[in-house]
């Protein structure tokens, strides 16, 4: 990877105005609308959102893994200079696994139960024709050890069902790393795991990422994970990025009413009074079928007004790194936030 270091400042991944429409029986589902972000090597972007926010669809679109009847549109979707929207199926196949790879939430569904761990690990490497079996085997053992699996050599001949959930997730990570990808996309990689294992897996990912200078997109609904892992955060609601910025700015000064609401929903050990009433976001995520206009959070927002149905401006912080989409100025929202936190304490 060292030969790439001179391009460190150029984004590895550059997305501009990504839109995903899904045709359904009831009409067009506008699942993802106008998403833009850049990601450099060595950076971690966390996309945080709830179910139905389109965060997983976005990652599948990047990997070129959306269903046949779904075509993503974008002004730009570039991976290291390759435009992904127009790339051939062959180009995408060569990119996937070799230069960008994905870790899924449920390892049992993405590991093939009929093959040994070793076969599956080595296949990732030999499939792209770059090496022989012996070298692939050595690499598999090396990576299994790296992800903290003891007796790596004997694990190669085991089948997925013989491993525990935590071990399987480690195998998944090892498999994703076999070809030394430049971009790794992890979709809720620790949601199915125990908290103790979660911390270990996240540490491991962060370490390997630093070592290999990979870019990482981590998709999660867990704000705790986001805070501890991310460099950059993108908050997604109903198919749109409502707020983006560096992790410390997002958590120190959350600006969009949705981000603020989310942070008020979770009890903070040592800060929230035990047994007190937690903040809530009333209502549910709206249907995105048919025409979608204005701010989609208006049905659940305490600051909503008729103007929320119109065009929503994008505010940018003085530093230029922190943006959010709302009709209100950050200052207008500030006072309310202080009041509601006060009410919760």
């Amino acid at each position: 990877m060292s030969q790439n270091n001179f391009r460190q400042d150029i984004p590895l991944l550059s997305i501009d105005n990504l839109t995903i429409d899904i045709p359904t029986a009831a009409g067009t589902l506008h699942a993802v609308r106008g998403i833009s972000f850049d990601l450099k090597r060595g950076e971690t972007l966390c996309i945080v959102g709830e179910s139905g926010s389109g965060k997983s669809l976005t990652s599948l679109a990047l990997m070129g893994l959306l269903g046949k009847n779904i075509t993503p549109r974008a002004d730009k979707m570039e991976f290291d200079g390759v435009e992904l929207t127009t790339a051939s199926a062959r180009t995408m196949r060569n990119l996937r696994g070799a230069r960008m790879s994905m870790i899924f939430q449920e390892p049992m569904t993405s590991l093939n139960p009929a093959y040994t761990i070793g076969d599956q690990l080595m296949e990732a490497l030999t499939l792209h024709g770059s090496t022989n079996r012996k070298k692939a085997r050595a690499r598999a053992i090396e990576l299994l050890e790296k992800v903290g699996i003891t007796a790596a050599e004997s694990r190669l001949s085991q089948y997925p069902h013989q491993l525990s959930g935590g071990l399987r997730q480690r195998v998944m990570i090892a498999m994703a790393l076999m070809c030394e990808p430049e971009l790794i996309i992890a979709d809720e990689p620790t949601t199915a795991l125990d908290v103790t294992i979660q911390a270990q897996i996240l540490r491991l990912l962060a370490e390997l990422q630093r070592e290999m200078n990979m870019a990482m997109i981590l998709i999660t609904h867990d704000l705790g994970v986001v805070a501890r892992v991310a460099d950059k955060v993108a908050v997604m609601y109903a198919g749109e990025l409502v707020e983006t910025g560096p992790v410390d700015e997002i958590f120190a000064a959350p600006s969009h009413p949705y981000t603020r609401g989310l942070l008020r929903c979770i009890p903070l050990p040592g800060k929230t009074k035990r047994g007190s009433v937690l903040g809530t976001i009333p209502g549910i995520v709206p249907s995105l079928v048919g025409e979608v206009n204005g701010c989609t959070f208006r049905t659940r927002c305490e600051h909503a007004s008729p103007a929320c149905r119109g065009t929503i401006p994008l505010h940018t912080s003085p530093t230029g790194t922190h943006t959010f989409r709302c009709i209100h100025q950050p200052e207008d929202l500030e006072t309310d936030a202080v009041q509601s936190t006060g009410a919760n304490a």
Binding site: P282, T299, A304
Partner: peptide, 29 residues
Amino acid sequence: MTLAPSTNSVDPLLQDIVGPTPGQQLRRR
């Protein structure tokens, strides 16, 4: 639920019961 004291029409995004009943769904399919 505080919604904008908005114009005359009901906001199309605001509906808390989603979709048809299983029976209707089955019939449609």
